[in-house]
Simulated assay, not measured.
Amino acid sequence: MLYRYTLPAAALGLAATMAQADPPHIAADILPTHGLVAAVTGDRTAPDLLVPPGASPHHAALRPSQARALAGADLMVWIGPSLSPALATARESLASGATVLTLSEVPGTVARESRPGGVFAVDGDDHGHDDDHGHDDDHSHDEDHAHDDDHAHDHADDHDHGPIDPHMWLDPENARAWLDAIAGALADLDPEGAEVYRANAETAKAAISEAERAAAERLAGAAERPFLVDHDSLLYFEERFGLTVAGALSASDADRPGAARASALRAAAAERGVACLLLSPEGRGGPAEALAQDAGLAVVVADPLGAALEPGPGHYPALMAHLSQAVADCTAPGG
């Protein structure tokens, strides 16, 4: 702490050293990222959150307090521009001098191709995605994913995920790799705290591994029971836990499904014995819920951002529990 009265000359060097030793200010993009950072920092410092709970990272517009947090950050931790293009612009104007850790670029990060909305192929099935797109679907798509979405939708003002699905935090393997990267970035900025950051990262990795084990146990048997989703945001979670998503009404915010896709999903649900649709919170009252009602599907709400969960060090393990329980409920026999 710096005081306003004049320090003796002998103390000036000590005061400067104390000022330099202050822990770095950190800005994190979304709640799962914020939770990982908080798990590494522990009590040494607390990160600021740029995208508040309930807001979409695809269209994040910073409030004045969030803009100030970003402007004052020594370290910005974010998934990357594919998830939050608006933050890329804000970073350039507000945090040009900050260290930036882009988690999607961390070595070892699992990255998966985006897929178009519609019916997904399952177990060698060859008719997925044919409702609106007219191309085959062994999860092998043109990288630009150009498709007409019922031939009449202008995507210019919406956010498209691009060739790589940006929801990378939903793979706990990525989260563990990122904890090490976060600890390393903080250690570079704050060498005095390096030991604490690395120890906290190890503790957090163990907690995530335990959450992953519990999720796998909760999801035992779920792989054989396909379900639908409104927005295709769970690909990493799906692949990590061997789940079967039969289709998605939309692939991204830019995707505007039409009647043909909804009809194909209803037919696929009947054919494959789908009994449930997993709905994101923002999908309440929308076309996906109407589809579920028309098809006689149960609806379970699941939030890949965990907006209702307590922020902080325990957020990521709690997110794994929340999502796995939602999928377990959605795929429960007779559910």
Rank of each mutant, 00 (worst) to 15 (best):
1 M>G: 14
19 A>M: 15
27 A>V: 06
31 L>I: 01
37 V>T: 07
48 D>V: 06
50 L>Q: 00
53 P>D: 03
66 Q>N: 03
71 A>E: 03
80 G>A: 06
81 P>F: 00
84 S>A: 12
88 A>S: 14
107 P>D: 07
115 R>S: 10
115 R>L: 13
118 G>I: 03
121 A>I: 06
123 D>I: 01
130 D>M: 14
131 D>T: 01
133 H>D: 00
134 G>Y: 14
137 D>E: 15
137 D>Q: 13
141 H>G: 02
147 H>V: 10
149 D>R: 13
172 P>W: 05
173 E>M: 10
176 R>L: 11
181 A>R: 00
196 V>R: 00
197 Y>F: 10
198 R>E: 15
199 A>D: 05
202 E>M: 05
205 K>W: 10
206 A>L: 03
211 A>Y: 05
211 A>M: 10
215 A>R: 04
217 E>Q: 15
231 H>L: 09
237 F>Q: 05
243 L>I: 06
246 A>F: 00
247 G>R: 03
255 D>M: 12
260 A>Y: 05
262 A>D: 00
266 R>Q: 15
268 A>G: 02
272 R>D: 02
276 C>P: 09
293 Q>R: 14
300 V>K: 07
302 A>G: 12
309 L>C: 09
315 H>L: 10
317 P>R: 03
321 A>S: 14
322 H>F: 06
325 Q>H: 15
328 A>Q: 11
334 G>N: 10
